[in-house]
Design a binder for these strands. Structure first.
Lengths: 345, 345
DNA sequence: AAAATTGCCTAAAACGTTTTCGAAAAATTC
DNA sequence: GAATTTTTCGAAAACGTTTTAGGCAATTTT
């Protein structure tokens, strides 16, 4: 069912028009040294004149390369992931790659589907971050064993060998943030986060605990919330109810996400507290709207755009130079930075 | 340079193992009625056993279909576009398509590049929204004339024939929003927006004006701001300075975007005004974080997700059924809804 | 002047499918 | 049991490239 309807011109048409062979035309187009400059000129002029555009599909089939990078993120509607994608895209373009973004819609099943879709020689490599439901990794192992370069970022797993990891030090960052809150004389600090299924959240909580231990301060279990809801509205109710039932309100909250920080602030205000006067709040992620929020949000700044850039650089070097990090060195840890704005002042 | 390294198995391997022809195996895999059920079973069992996965590239080359939809948006970091993409993706999956999202990074040059990349038989159709710098449309005309189905959404142009348009009635929506503000007894209303280059902004301003005319109310030219900046920070300064210099503060502002609404509120609060007590604010877009904002933002709700869904439905029907809207009927106008939350109470 | 080298080009195979055309086998009809 | 129809399968062309292997002419080396 090859629709002869669109009159796309092919190498063969150029060859005929120029009285050359297809091979020569192909080589001329791709600037091979094996064709004489004058001929190249002729070919290129004719290609321009006839409006020739190479058929990428045929190219891919023949060369085995697609110049496409597959990206799998847990969801589209989290600005962090979009920022990472922007970073990936930025580097991809630089090296003449395009990216295909797939969302797992927070489901292990869809994530697996996405990896299968990417296996089929449609992409040259894959950059991905796991959903927090992902506990087995055979789908990734399969990609790797088929020779597809893979780079993992953000929510990764150390169980996977043969893929590079690009992460931040969640533990250390959370430690620093909490340490700062403690040093600024907040005697009791709460922690608000999401599902305990997500390993990054656990690491952040570990950092939170460690900061308390090292400063000889104790936190109250009653001040810890791990939301179970998924939707914004429900999460807000959960946070609100939690805060509402507290007998004693902490001086500050460390939230594992800017989103939770915003919900927390909103609930605090509803409950009649002033932020930061009565309660201070520290977020995590430093999304671009953190600074638009009123009051402006203090946050652990995660280099999301840069994280995408680094992931893409590594992936492309894997693809092109067949260059693999040796074992143990395949982990890149990106620095974070605490940005103090109004909510902790 | 076909790397024999990955042992992907092909139809030929299946055929050999089953002592059948490639043709039969191909047909069995794709459930053609021309092969006996029993043979199908055998083929499918063997395919499963040997881990066969069809090569999509070869499939595309042969069939002339890629099952990929190209999406071009002005920028990644605007939640509205991401929402639209989610909608597109939702429908695309339903019909077994994948989407490739490209950002024009707010540049006409990149937009054109993106359309060229999509022309090359890599996609079956294109869904796009223009940057506000886009004034000529030959790149789109070229796609259409090559037989590539195109659907335009949001920021479109009526100059383009042969592409469907999916839009909201910016004029009417802005009219309704302003009308409501007037009816609720706001005697003077300001308007805060972005560059006048963007036609949707102009239409929204027209609606704003019309509501005044019909209600016999006048607005003050001094209360109109069209920001020229691009970056958040600068825009905020611009809004702040504008408000700061106002001799007389209006009772309410209609903002052409939720983003502007947030900046406006932030500036108002900084200047010591209470929202909504002193000044009311109405946004446009109803992004998912409008409700997380404190105070919660009133906004014209734009069905962004749905807009994506509709665009995808139209595109796919164009692709599959060769079904084209007849002239004049190729425009779908989606309804908006005013969501009153705290900032106008 | 013969031999070797270089520069420029071509024919044809290969990539892995789909699909057309047709043939053989099986089932049905007379 | 022959003729017809239906079912089932196979050979080969096609999709548009890249690349291998090689050929011919011009140039350089012996």
């Amino acid at each position: 069912m090859n629709s002869k309807v669109n009159p796309n011109i092919r190498l063969e048409d150029l060859a005929r028009a120029l009285k050359l062979s297809i091979a020569t035309v192909s080589r001329a187009i791709s600037d091979s040294p094996r064709v004489k400059p004058e001929t190249k000129k002729r070919v290129k002029a004719m290609a321009e004149k006839m409006g020739y555009r190479p058929n990428q599909i045929a190219k891919s089939l023949s060369s085995g390369k697609t110049n496409v990078i597959g990206v799998i993120i847990p969801r589209y509607d989290e600005p962090f992931f979009i920022e990472v994608c922007r970073g990936i895209d930025h580097i991809a373009r630089k090296y003449n790659y395009r990216i295909v973004i797939s969302s797992s819609r927070n489901s292990y099943k869809f994530e697996k589907e996405n990896t299968f879709a990417f296996e089929k020689g449609v992409v040259d490599g894959v950059i991905m971050s796991f959903t927090h439901h992902t506990k087995t990794f055979t789908h990734v192992d399969e990609m790797i064993s088929r020779g597809l370069p893979v780079v993992l970022f953000d929510n990764v797993s150390s169980k996977i060998k043969g893929a590079a990891h690009v992460i931040i030090d969640d533990y250390e960052s959370a430690f620093q943030a909490t340490d700062l809150l403690i040093k600024e004389n907040n005697k009791s600090i709460g922690y608000i986060s999401g599902t305990v299924m997500k390993t990054v959240f656990n690491k952040r909580f570990d950092g939170f605990k460690e900061a308390h231990i090292r400063n000889n301060q104790v936190y109250d279990e009653k001040h810890i919330l791990n939301c179970k809801s998924i939707h914004q509205e429900h999460e807000y109710r959960e946070v609100y109810n939690f805060l509402n039932k507290l007998e004693h309100m902490p001086n500050a909250f460390f939230c594992s996400t800017d989103n939770y920080a915003m919900l927390t602030i909103k609930a605090l205000i509803k409950l009649g507290y002033k932020v930061p006067r009565d309660v201070k709040v520290m977020g995590f992620g430093n999304l671009h709207y953190s600074s638009m929020f009123t009051p402006e949000l203090s946050s652990v700044s995660q280099p999301s755009f840069y994280m995408g850039e680094v992931s893409a650089e590594i992936l492309i070097s894997k693809i092109e130079k067949d260059y693999y990090f040796e074992d143990g060195k395949d982990e890149v840890i990106l620095p974070t930075k605490i940005v103090q704005r109004e909510t902790t002042r």
